[in-house]
Design a protein around this nucleic acid. Sequence first.
DNA 1: ATTTGCATCCCCCAAATGAGGTATTTCCTG
DNA 2: CAGGAAATACCTCATTTGGGGGATGCAAAT
Lengths: 210, 210
Amino acid sequence: MIKVLVYEDNNSLRQTLQLLIAQDDSLWLVGAHSNCNSIKINIEDGIKPDVILMDIDMPGIGGIEGVKIAKSIIPDVQVIIFTVYEDDEKLFRCLMAGANGYLLKKNSASQIVAAIKDVYGGGVPMNPEIARKVMRLFKEEKATITHNLSDREVELLAMLSQGLPYKIIAIQTGISVETVKTHLKNIYQKMHVANGTEAVGKGLRMRIIR
Amino acid sequence: MIKVLVYEDNNSLRQTLQLLIAQDDSLWLVGAHSNCNSIKINIEDGIKPDVILMDIDMPGIGGIEGVKIAKSIIPDVQVIIFTVYEDDEKLFRCLMAGANGYLLKKNSASQIVAAIKDVYGGGVPMNPEIARKVMRLFKEEKATITHNLSDREVELLAMLSQGLPYKIIAIQTGISVETVKTHLKNIYQKMHVANGTEAVGKGLRMRIIR
DNA sequence: ATTTGCATCCCCCAAATGAGGTATTTCCTG
DNA sequence: CAGGAAATACCTCATTTGGGGGATGCAAAT
Protein backbone atom coordinates (compact mmCIF):
# COMPACT_ATOMS: atom_id res chain seq x y z
CA MET A 1 0.00 0.00 0.00
CA ILE A 2 1.25 3.46 -0.88
CA LYS A 3 0.93 5.81 2.09
CA VAL A 4 -0.32 9.18 0.94
CA LEU A 5 -0.35 12.49 2.79
CA VAL A 6 -2.38 15.41 1.47
CA TYR A 7 -1.97 19.17 1.93
CA GLU A 8 -4.72 21.26 0.37
CA ASP A 9 -6.40 24.29 1.86
CA ASN A 10 -9.58 24.16 -0.15
CA ASN A 11 -11.91 22.10 2.03
CA SER A 12 -14.11 20.57 -0.62
CA LEU A 13 -11.17 19.76 -2.86
CA ARG A 14 -9.36 18.17 0.06
CA GLN A 15 -12.36 16.02 0.77
CA THR A 16 -12.57 15.02 -2.85
CA LEU A 17 -8.93 13.97 -2.74
CA GLN A 18 -9.55 12.00 0.44
CA LEU A 19 -12.39 10.11 -1.19
CA LEU A 20 -10.36 9.54 -4.29
CA ILE A 21 -7.49 8.02 -2.34
CA ALA A 22 -9.78 6.05 -0.03
CA GLN A 23 -11.47 4.48 -3.02
CA ASP A 24 -8.28 2.97 -4.35
CA ASP A 25 -7.19 -0.26 -2.70
CA SER A 26 -3.49 0.30 -3.26
CA LEU A 27 -3.52 3.76 -1.67
CA TRP A 28 -3.65 4.50 2.05
CA LEU A 29 -4.42 8.02 3.19
CA VAL A 30 -2.33 8.72 6.27
CA GLY A 31 -3.40 12.33 6.66
CA ALA A 32 -4.99 15.37 5.03
CA HIS A 33 -4.28 18.87 6.25
CA SER A 34 -5.24 22.37 5.17
CA ASN A 35 -1.75 23.85 5.70
CA CYS A 36 1.87 22.96 6.34
CA ASN A 37 2.15 24.71 9.68
CA SER A 38 2.57 21.45 11.57
CA ILE A 39 4.11 19.40 8.75
CA LYS A 40 7.13 18.53 10.87
CA ILE A 41 4.90 17.00 13.54
CA ASN A 42 2.63 15.37 10.94
CA ILE A 43 5.54 13.57 9.39
CA GLU A 44 7.64 12.82 12.43
CA ASP A 45 4.87 11.67 14.75
CA GLY A 46 2.37 10.25 12.27
CA ILE A 47 2.75 7.38 9.85
CA LYS A 48 5.62 8.08 7.45
CA PRO A 49 4.13 8.88 4.03
CA ASP A 50 5.52 7.53 0.77
CA VAL A 51 3.93 10.21 -1.35
CA ILE A 52 2.81 13.75 -0.51
CA LEU A 53 0.26 15.58 -2.61
CA MET A 54 1.01 19.24 -2.03
CA ASP A 55 -0.87 22.43 -2.83
CA ILE A 56 1.22 25.59 -3.18
CA ASP A 57 -0.97 28.39 -1.89
CA MET A 58 -1.80 27.74 1.72
CA PRO A 59 -2.06 30.00 4.76
CA GLY A 60 1.03 30.04 6.94
CA ILE A 61 3.79 27.80 5.66
CA GLY A 62 3.28 27.43 1.91
CA GLY A 63 3.72 24.34 -0.19
CA ILE A 64 7.19 25.19 -1.45
CA GLU A 65 8.52 25.59 2.07
CA GLY A 66 6.58 22.45 2.96
CA VAL A 67 8.42 20.42 0.32
CA LYS A 68 11.76 21.49 1.70
CA ILE A 69 10.78 20.55 5.24
CA ALA A 70 9.31 17.21 4.19
CA LYS A 71 12.37 16.32 2.11
CA SER A 72 14.69 17.24 4.94
CA ILE A 73 12.89 14.82 7.27
CA ILE A 74 12.22 11.98 4.80
CA PRO A 75 14.61 12.40 1.86
CA ASP A 76 12.96 9.54 -0.04
CA VAL A 77 9.44 10.88 0.19
CA GLN A 78 7.97 11.63 -3.23
CA VAL A 79 6.24 14.96 -3.54
CA ILE A 80 3.69 15.81 -6.19
CA ILE A 81 2.82 19.46 -6.47
CA PHE A 82 -0.88 19.95 -7.12
CA THR A 83 -1.71 23.47 -8.16
CA VAL A 84 -3.39 25.84 -10.55
CA TYR A 85 -0.17 27.72 -11.19
CA GLU A 86 1.54 27.20 -14.50
CA ASP A 87 3.97 30.10 -14.34
CA ASP A 88 7.70 29.58 -14.63
CA GLU A 89 8.51 31.22 -11.33
CA LYS A 90 6.38 28.90 -9.19
CA LEU A 91 7.37 25.83 -11.17
CA PHE A 92 11.01 26.69 -10.90
CA ARG A 93 10.86 27.20 -7.15
CA CYS A 94 8.99 23.92 -6.66
CA LEU A 95 11.60 22.01 -8.64
CA MET A 96 14.33 23.68 -6.66
CA ALA A 97 12.61 22.66 -3.47
CA GLY A 98 12.78 19.06 -4.64
CA ALA A 99 9.33 18.30 -6.04
CA ASN A 100 9.13 15.01 -7.95
CA GLY A 101 6.02 15.70 -9.96
CA TYR A 102 3.87 18.63 -10.93
CA LEU A 103 0.15 18.20 -11.51
CA LEU A 104 -2.31 20.86 -12.50
CA LYS A 105 -5.69 21.05 -10.81
CA LYS A 106 -7.34 20.73 -14.17
CA ASN A 107 -6.13 17.13 -14.30
CA SER A 108 -8.73 14.44 -13.92
CA ALA A 109 -9.26 12.26 -10.86
CA SER A 110 -7.89 9.20 -12.60
CA GLN A 111 -4.78 11.11 -13.61
CA ILE A 112 -4.18 12.10 -10.00
CA VAL A 113 -4.37 8.51 -8.81
CA ALA A 114 -2.17 7.42 -11.69
CA ALA A 115 0.36 10.11 -10.83
CA ILE A 116 0.61 8.94 -7.24
CA LYS A 117 1.36 5.42 -8.37
CA ASP A 118 3.69 6.69 -11.06
CA VAL A 119 5.81 8.79 -8.73
CA TYR A 120 5.93 5.96 -6.21
CA GLY A 121 7.28 3.72 -8.94
CA GLY A 122 10.04 6.15 -9.76
CA GLY A 123 8.26 8.08 -12.49
CA VAL A 124 8.02 11.83 -12.88
CA PRO A 125 4.36 12.68 -13.37
CA MET A 126 3.73 16.00 -15.02
CA ASN A 127 1.68 17.39 -17.85
CA PRO A 128 3.46 17.59 -21.18
CA GLU A 129 3.28 21.38 -21.14
CA ILE A 130 4.91 21.40 -17.73
CA ALA A 131 7.56 18.94 -18.85
CA ARG A 132 8.26 21.19 -21.79
CA LYS A 133 8.58 24.18 -19.48
CA VAL A 134 11.06 22.25 -17.37
CA MET A 135 13.14 21.53 -20.43
CA ARG A 136 13.02 25.15 -21.43
CA LEU A 137 13.96 26.35 -17.95
CA PHE A 138 16.78 23.86 -17.97
CA LYS A 139 18.12 25.26 -21.18
CA GLU A 140 17.64 28.87 -20.13
CA GLU A 141 19.68 28.17 -17.06
CA LYS A 142 22.52 27.25 -19.28
CA ALA A 143 21.99 29.65 -22.12
CA THR A 144 25.33 31.05 -23.08
CA ILE A 145 24.91 34.68 -23.90
CA THR A 146 27.20 35.94 -26.56
CA HIS A 147 30.03 38.13 -25.49
CA ASN A 148 32.85 39.72 -27.38
CA LEU A 149 35.71 38.73 -25.11
CA SER A 150 38.68 37.02 -26.69
CA ASP A 151 39.81 33.61 -25.50
CA ARG A 152 42.69 35.16 -23.64
CA GLU A 153 40.39 37.64 -21.93
CA VAL A 154 38.01 34.90 -20.81
CA GLU A 155 40.99 32.98 -19.48
CA LEU A 156 42.17 35.93 -17.41
CA LEU A 157 38.66 36.67 -16.17
CA ALA A 158 38.38 33.08 -14.97
CA MET A 159 41.64 33.38 -13.09
CA LEU A 160 40.53 36.66 -11.60
CA SER A 161 37.37 34.97 -10.34
CA GLN A 162 39.61 32.51 -8.48
CA GLY A 163 40.96 35.44 -6.54
CA LEU A 164 44.42 35.29 -8.06
CA PRO A 165 46.29 38.61 -7.85
CA TYR A 166 47.78 40.11 -11.00
CA LYS A 167 51.24 38.85 -10.10
CA ILE A 168 50.19 35.24 -9.98
CA ILE A 169 48.07 35.53 -13.10
CA ALA A 170 51.11 36.93 -14.88
CA ILE A 171 53.30 34.03 -13.78
CA GLN A 172 50.68 31.38 -14.53
CA THR A 173 50.05 32.71 -18.02
CA GLY A 174 53.65 33.57 -18.70
CA ILE A 175 52.98 37.23 -19.47
CA SER A 176 53.94 40.41 -17.66
CA VAL A 177 51.86 42.02 -14.94
CA GLU A 178 51.49 45.06 -17.15
CA THR A 179 49.89 42.96 -19.85
CA VAL A 180 47.55 41.44 -17.32
CA LYS A 181 46.49 44.95 -16.41
CA THR A 182 45.99 45.85 -20.05
CA HIS A 183 43.83 42.79 -20.65
CA LEU A 184 41.71 43.50 -17.60
CA LYS A 185 41.28 47.11 -18.62
CA ASN A 186 39.98 45.91 -21.99
CA ILE A 187 37.73 43.36 -20.31
CA TYR A 188 36.19 46.03 -18.09
CA GLN A 189 35.58 48.23 -21.11
CA LYS A 190 34.01 45.48 -23.18
CA MET A 191 31.83 44.32 -20.30
CA HIS A 192 30.91 47.84 -19.26
CA VAL A 193 31.95 47.24 -15.69
CA ALA A 194 34.01 49.30 -13.31
CA ASN A 195 36.13 46.75 -11.50
CA GLY A 196 37.10 43.13 -11.00
CA THR A 197 34.34 42.12 -8.63
CA GLU A 198 31.68 43.39 -11.01
CA ALA A 199 33.38 41.70 -13.94
CA VAL A 200 33.45 38.39 -12.07
CA GLY A 201 29.84 38.84 -11.01
CA LYS A 202 28.67 39.64 -14.50
CA GLY A 203 30.91 37.01 -16.05
CA LEU A 204 29.51 34.25 -13.88
CA ARG A 205 25.92 35.42 -14.25
CA MET A 206 26.32 35.62 -18.02
CA ARG A 207 28.07 32.25 -17.90
CA ILE A 208 31.06 33.58 -19.73
CA ILE A 209 33.00 31.78 -17.04
CA ARG A 210 31.93 28.91 -14.81
CA MET B 1 1.27 13.03 -41.54
CA ILE B 2 4.28 13.49 -39.29
CA LYS B 3 7.45 13.82 -41.34
CA VAL B 4 10.24 11.86 -39.69
CA LEU B 5 13.98 11.99 -40.34
CA VAL B 6 16.27 9.30 -38.95
CA TYR B 7 19.97 9.37 -38.08
CA GLU B 8 21.37 6.05 -36.95
CA ASP B 9 24.70 4.54 -37.92
CA ASN B 10 23.87 0.92 -37.22
CA ASN B 11 22.60 -0.33 -40.56
CA SER B 12 20.26 -3.05 -39.37
CA LEU B 13 18.80 -0.87 -36.65
CA ARG B 14 18.29 1.95 -39.13
CA GLN B 15 16.44 -0.41 -41.45
CA THR B 16 14.31 -1.58 -38.57
CA LEU B 17 13.40 2.01 -37.79
CA GLN B 18 12.59 2.65 -41.44
CA LEU B 19 10.22 -0.30 -41.49
CA LEU B 20 8.69 0.74 -38.22
CA ILE B 21 7.94 4.24 -39.47
CA ALA B 22 6.81 3.05 -42.89
CA GLN B 23 4.31 0.72 -41.26
CA ASP B 24 2.48 3.51 -39.48
CA ASP B 25 0.01 5.44 -41.59
CA SER B 26 0.42 8.70 -39.70
CA LEU B 27 4.22 8.73 -40.07
CA TRP B 28 6.12 9.65 -43.20
CA LEU B 29 9.81 8.82 -43.42
CA VAL B 30 11.51 11.67 -45.26
CA GLY B 31 15.04 10.33 -44.86
CA ALA B 32 17.33 7.94 -43.01
CA HIS B 33 21.08 8.54 -42.77
CA SER B 34 24.00 6.88 -41.05
CA ASN B 35 25.62 10.14 -39.94
CA CYS B 36 25.05 13.88 -39.61
CA ASN B 37 27.80 14.93 -41.95
CA SER B 38 25.36 16.30 -44.49
CA ILE B 39 22.53 17.15 -42.09
CA LYS B 40 22.47 20.76 -43.27
CA ILE B 41 21.86 19.67 -46.84
CA ASN B 42 19.43 16.93 -45.76
CA ILE B 43 17.27 19.43 -43.97
CA GLU B 44 17.58 22.43 -46.23
CA ASP B 45 17.22 20.68 -49.56
CA GLY B 46 15.02 17.74 -48.63
CA ILE B 47 11.54 17.70 -47.18
CA LYS B 48 11.46 19.60 -43.89
CA PRO B 49 11.05 17.06 -41.09
CA ASP B 50 8.74 17.53 -38.12
CA VAL B 51 10.55 15.05 -35.93
CA ILE B 52 14.14 13.82 -35.98
CA LEU B 53 15.15 10.53 -34.39
CA MET B 54 18.80 10.97 -33.53
CA ASP B 55 21.49 8.55 -32.46
CA ILE B 56 24.41 10.02 -30.50
CA ASP B 57 27.43 8.00 -31.53
CA MET B 58 28.01 8.40 -35.22
CA PRO B 59 31.13 8.80 -37.34
CA GLY B 60 31.93 12.39 -38.26
CA ILE B 61 29.43 14.89 -36.89
CA GLY B 62 27.86 13.31 -33.82
CA GLY B 63 24.26 13.45 -32.73
CA ILE B 64 24.70 16.24 -30.20
CA GLU B 65 26.26 18.52 -32.78
CA GLY B 66 23.55 17.36 -35.17
CA VAL B 67 20.80 18.53 -32.83
CA LYS B 68 22.33 21.99 -32.64
CA ILE B 69 22.59 22.25 -36.41
CA ALA B 70 19.05 20.95 -36.98
CA LYS B 71 17.59 23.31 -34.37
CA SER B 72 19.42 26.27 -35.87
CA ILE B 73 17.88 25.58 -39.28
CA ILE B 74 14.38 24.54 -38.14
CA PRO B 75 13.84 25.87 -34.61
CA ASP B 76 10.50 24.07 -34.32
CA VAL B 77 11.77 20.64 -35.27
CA GLN B 78 11.34 18.12 -32.48
CA VAL B 79 14.35 15.97 -31.77
CA ILE B 80 14.25 12.65 -29.98
CA ILE B 81 17.59 11.28 -28.90
CA PHE B 82 17.77 7.53 -29.39
CA THR B 83 20.73 6.00 -27.67
CA VAL B 84 22.15 3.36 -25.37
CA TYR B 85 23.77 5.97 -23.16
CA GLU B 86 22.22 6.64 -19.80
CA ASP B 87 25.05 8.64 -18.26
CA ASP B 88 24.52 12.13 -16.92
CA GLU B 89 27.16 13.70 -19.10
CA LYS B 90 25.65 12.64 -22.42
CA LEU B 91 22.13 13.35 -21.24
CA PHE B 92 23.11 16.78 -20.04
CA ARG B 93 24.80 17.71 -23.28
CA CYS B 94 21.84 16.52 -25.33
CA LEU B 95 19.43 18.59 -23.29
CA MET B 96 21.70 21.59 -23.62
CA ALA B 97 21.75 21.08 -27.36
CA GLY B 98 17.97 21.31 -27.34
CA ALA B 99 16.74 17.72 -27.49
CA ASN B 100 13.00 17.34 -26.87
CA GLY B 101 12.95 13.71 -25.89
CA TYR B 102 15.34 11.02 -24.82
CA LEU B 103 14.69 7.38 -25.65
CA LEU B 104 16.83 4.42 -24.79
CA LYS B 105 17.50 1.72 -27.37
CA LYS B 106 16.08 -0.83 -25.00
CA ASN B 107 12.67 0.74 -25.59
CA SER B 108 10.18 -1.28 -27.61
CA ALA B 109 9.13 -0.56 -31.16
CA SER B 110 5.70 0.59 -30.08
CA GLN B 111 7.23 2.97 -27.58
CA ILE B 112 9.35 4.52 -30.29
CA VAL B 113 6.36 5.15 -32.53
CA ALA B 114 4.41 6.49 -29.54
CA ALA B 115 7.29 8.80 -28.65
CA ILE B 116 7.36 10.29 -32.15
CA LYS B 117 3.66 11.08 -31.96
CA ASP B 118 4.03 12.31 -28.39
CA VAL B 119 6.81 14.76 -29.14
CA TYR B 120 4.98 16.00 -32.21
CA GLY B 121 1.99 16.71 -30.00
CA GLY B 122 4.07 18.77 -27.60
CA GLY B 123 4.98 16.03 -25.18
CA VAL B 124 8.39 15.21 -23.78
CA PRO B 125 8.96 11.49 -24.28
CA MET B 126 11.54 9.97 -22.01
CA ASN B 127 11.87 6.99 -19.75
CA PRO B 128 11.00 7.64 -16.12
CA GLU B 129 14.58 6.99 -15.05
CA ILE B 130 15.76 9.58 -17.55
CA ALA B 131 13.12 12.06 -16.43
CA ARG B 132 14.30 11.53 -12.89
CA LYS B 133 17.87 12.15 -13.93
CA VAL B 134 16.81 15.39 -15.58
CA MET B 135 15.17 16.52 -12.38
CA ARG B 136 18.23 15.61 -10.39
CA LEU B 137 20.54 17.42 -12.81
CA PHE B 138 18.24 20.40 -12.60
CA LYS B 139 18.47 20.45 -8.84
CA GLU B 140 22.20 19.85 -8.76
CA GLU B 141 22.62 22.86 -10.92
CA LYS B 142 20.90 24.88 -8.27
CA ALA B 143 21.91 23.12 -5.07
CA THR B 144 22.33 25.67 -2.36
CA ILE B 145 25.28 24.78 -0.21
CA THR B 146 25.10 25.88 3.36
CA HIS B 147 27.25 28.77 4.42
CA ASN B 148 27.73 30.54 7.69
CA LEU B 149 27.43 34.11 6.50
CA SER B 150 25.02 36.38 8.33
CA ASP B 151 22.22 38.11 6.45
CA ARG B 152 24.11 41.36 6.56
CA GLU B 153 27.22 39.74 5.18
CA VAL B 154 25.32 38.14 2.30
CA GLU B 155 23.79 41.51 1.56
CA LEU B 156 27.18 43.19 1.38
CA LEU B 157 28.62 40.36 -0.72
CA ALA B 158 25.79 40.80 -3.19
CA MET B 159 26.49 44.51 -3.44
CA LEU B 160 30.17 43.81 -3.87
CA SER B 161 29.35 41.49 -6.77
CA GLN B 162 27.60 44.41 -8.43
CA GLY B 163 30.92 46.21 -8.46
CA LEU B 164 29.95 48.83 -5.91
CA PRO B 165 32.92 50.36 -4.13
CA TYR B 166 32.99 50.47 -0.31
CA LYS B 167 31.91 54.10 -0.28
CA ILE B 168 28.70 53.45 -2.15
CA ILE B 169 27.93 50.30 -0.20
CA ALA B 170 28.31 52.33 2.98
CA ILE B 171 25.89 54.98 1.75
CA GLN B 172 23.36 52.47 0.40
CA THR B 173 23.31 50.48 3.61
CA GLY B 174 23.58 53.48 5.85
CA ILE B 175 26.68 52.29 7.67
CA SER B 176 30.22 53.62 7.72
CA VAL B 177 32.91 52.61 5.28
CA GLU B 178 34.87 51.21 8.18
CA THR B 179 32.03 48.85 9.03
CA VAL B 180 31.82 47.77 5.42
CA LYS B 181 35.48 46.91 5.61
CA THR B 182 35.01 44.98 8.82
CA HIS B 183 32.16 42.99 7.34
CA LEU B 184 34.13 42.17 4.23
CA LYS B 185 37.13 41.15 6.29
CA ASN B 186 34.88 38.75 8.20
CA ILE B 187 33.34 37.46 4.98
CA TYR B 188 36.76 36.71 3.53
CA GLN B 189 37.73 34.85 6.68
CA LYS B 190 34.55 32.82 6.80
CA MET B 191 34.72 31.95 3.11
CA HIS B 192 38.45 31.26 3.22
CA VAL B 193 39.14 33.61 0.36
CA ALA B 194 41.75 36.28 -0.12
CA ASN B 195 39.89 39.09 -1.80
CA GLY B 196 36.67 40.42 -3.24
CA THR B 197 36.87 38.84 -6.66
CA GLU B 198 37.36 35.40 -5.16
CA ALA B 199 34.54 35.97 -2.68
CA VAL B 200 32.20 36.98 -5.48
CA GLY B 201 33.33 34.01 -7.57
CA LYS B 202 32.85 31.55 -4.76
CA GLY B 203 29.66 33.22 -3.60
CA LEU B 204 28.05 32.94 -7.01
CA ARG B 205 29.30 29.40 -7.60
CA MET B 206 28.02 28.34 -4.18
CA ARG B 207 24.84 30.23 -4.93
CA ILE B 208 25.09 32.22 -1.74
CA ILE B 209 24.28 35.14 -3.97
CA ARG B 210 22.56 35.21 -7.35
C1' DA C 1 26.58 34.81 34.64
C1' DT C 2 29.59 34.29 31.02
C1' DT C 3 30.51 33.46 26.49
C1' DT C 4 29.65 33.94 21.75
C1' DG C 5 28.10 35.98 17.45
C1' DC C 6 26.58 40.01 15.19
C1' DA C 7 26.76 44.69 13.85
C1' DT C 8 28.79 48.78 14.39
C1' DC C 9 32.87 52.10 14.45
C1' DC C 10 37.86 53.77 14.46
C1' DC C 11 43.16 54.06 13.16
C1' DC C 12 47.30 52.91 10.44
C1' DC C 13 49.59 51.43 6.49
C1' DA C 14 51.22 48.52 2.76
C1' DA C 15 49.84 46.36 -1.26
C1' DA C 16 46.72 45.86 -5.04
C1' DT C 17 44.02 47.91 -8.33
C1' DG C 18 42.34 50.75 -12.20
C1' DA C 19 42.57 54.69 -15.41
C1' DG C 20 45.25 57.51 -18.28
C1' DG C 21 48.40 57.10 -21.77
C1' DT C 22 51.73 54.97 -25.78
C1' DA C 23 53.78 51.24 -28.56
C1' DT C 24 55.08 46.85 -31.13
C1' DT C 25 54.04 42.53 -33.34
C1' DT C 26 51.17 39.27 -35.44
C1' DC C 27 47.48 37.72 -37.84
C1' DC C 28 43.32 38.03 -40.38
C1' DT C 29 40.08 40.15 -43.62
C1' DG C 30 38.28 43.05 -47.07
C1' DC D 1 47.89 46.18 -49.12
C1' DA D 2 45.45 48.84 -45.60
C1' DG D 3 42.86 48.41 -41.50
C1' DG D 4 41.71 46.20 -37.40
C1' DA D 5 41.53 43.20 -33.72
C1' DA D 6 44.38 40.67 -30.45
C1' DA D 7 48.19 40.07 -27.55
C1' DT D 8 52.06 41.83 -25.75
C1' DA D 9 54.65 45.49 -22.83
C1' DC D 10 55.82 49.80 -20.33
C1' DC D 11 54.98 54.30 -17.48
C1' DT D 12 52.63 57.28 -13.99
C1' DC D 13 49.65 58.19 -10.38
C1' DA D 14 45.54 58.45 -7.61
C1' DT D 15 42.34 55.50 -5.50
C1' DT D 16 40.83 51.23 -3.58
C1' DT D 17 41.49 47.46 -1.10
C1' DG D 18 42.71 44.43 2.62
C1' DG D 19 45.17 43.11 6.92
C1' DG D 20 46.63 44.29 11.49
C1' DG D 21 45.03 45.97 15.43
C1' DG D 22 41.25 47.66 19.17
C1' DA D 23 36.46 48.90 20.86
C1' DT D 24 31.37 49.09 22.08
C1' DG D 25 26.43 47.56 22.60
C1' DC D 26 23.23 43.94 22.24
C1' DA D 27 20.95 39.67 22.00
C1' DA D 28 21.04 34.84 22.20
C1' DA D 29 22.92 30.77 23.79
C1' DT D 30 25.19 28.04 27.35
